[in-house]
Amino acid sequence: MIYLDAAATTPVRREVLEAMWPYLTGEFGNPSSHHETGERAAAALRAARADVAATLGCRPSEVIFTSGGTEADNLAVQGIALARAARDPRRRRVVISAVEHAAVTASAEFLARVLGFTVSRVPVDSQGRVDPAELSGLLDDDVALCSVMYANNEIGTVQAVAELAAAARASDVPFHTDAVQAAGWLPLDVAALGVDAMSLSGHKLGAPKGTGVLYVRSRTPLEPLIHGGGQERGARSGTENVAGAVGFAAALRLAEAARPVQAARVAALRSRFIDRVLAEVPGSLLTGAPEERLPSVASFCFPGTSGESVLLELERAGVTCSSGSACAAGSDEPSEVLLATGLDRETAQTAVRFSFPAAVAEEELEEAAERVRQAVAAVRALRAPA
């Protein structure tokens, strides 16, 4: 099998499992307990928080451990918007891009549907990019939060986050970015990016599913969504997942250490894969930005096919990939991300995404490109009139 669906999930790294193991076995203490067993767990949690903070260039107190990227997005969008509105009742609007992950979009829609906020969506161009000037035009003194993802999970487009965050800061609007897909591939220094909040997920990095982080800049108001014992400095109650935090910190540290070399290597392989597919599959369309793109994502539409049919052919041929976001699995509706870039519904339903693991080999991508050519040809032949 050639696994090219790393944007959906990655296997847990052995080093991460080894780091976690003590806290899944003998070191089982509750970090809120004031005895020796609990103190050891608390020390491990502090060390993991400091480790994550060192990678992000922030203070440990600005790191909140979550159950994953979805929870981090919910806490950022709802928590910051609610806190800002409580301080200034005029601020009842949330601004997001037209290509956000469902965790951000659904959080904003919840605020509108249940709590009376309004939601503005900044459009994107045909490559999925947000124009900072267009974003600025939507920011006014009624906006509680702006959220634009760092890198898109379906088409791989990388946003000019530093410019977008600067536009929000000029309007005194907190800026959140979903960096789940960017981690391990793009720089995560929060000071350089200028963001007020950033979401990360462990299982994209070689940590277990159910682990994640939300960075929130100091003095950014945040209303907790989970109430109870006041863990995570009051931002997220509940007994902390010590092993998960340790595993997340280890995975992030390992990914960041390898990133400069790894990202350059995979980007070169990705570009060759894109060039070959475009050259050998007639009518194929690259989606997303050709240059401002994640090193690990190549995404196409294959007019005259069905994306799901191409996926089935590829799976039979031993290539595992997807039609887009794993979080939209089971839906036969065309991708909202692709529709936002201007594609028609019929073309959008032919989408296939290839997302590469860090260790992907050149030979694997050469073989995969050939199998893509064969799969698309087979589907088109079946759909051709008799």
Rank of each mutant, 00 (worst) to 15 (best):
A160Q: 13
E163S: 13
E163M: 11
L164Q: 02
A166D: 05
A167P: 01
A168T: 06
V173C: 08
P174H: 03
T177K: 05
D178L: 07
A179N: 08
V180W: 02
A183N: 11
A183W: 04
G184K: 01
G184I: 03
L186R: 14
L186I: 13
V190S: 01
A191Y: 15
A191R: 15
A191V: 14
A192E: 14
L193D: 03
V195M: 10
A197K: 02
M198T: 02
S199V: 06
L200D: 00
S201V: 09
G202S: 05
H203V: 08
G210Y: 09
T211C: 06
G212V: 08
V216A: 13
V216I: 14
R217Y: 06
S218M: 15
S218T: 15
E223S: 13
L225I: 15
I226F: 12
Q231Y: 05
G234I: 00
N241G: 07
N241Q: 09
V242P: 00
G244A: 02
G244I: 00
A245V: 10
G247N: 06
G247P: 03
L252A: 08
L252C: 10
R253C: 07
R253Q: 11
A255G: 05
A257H: 03
A257R: 04
A258V: 07
V261M: 06
Q262W: 09
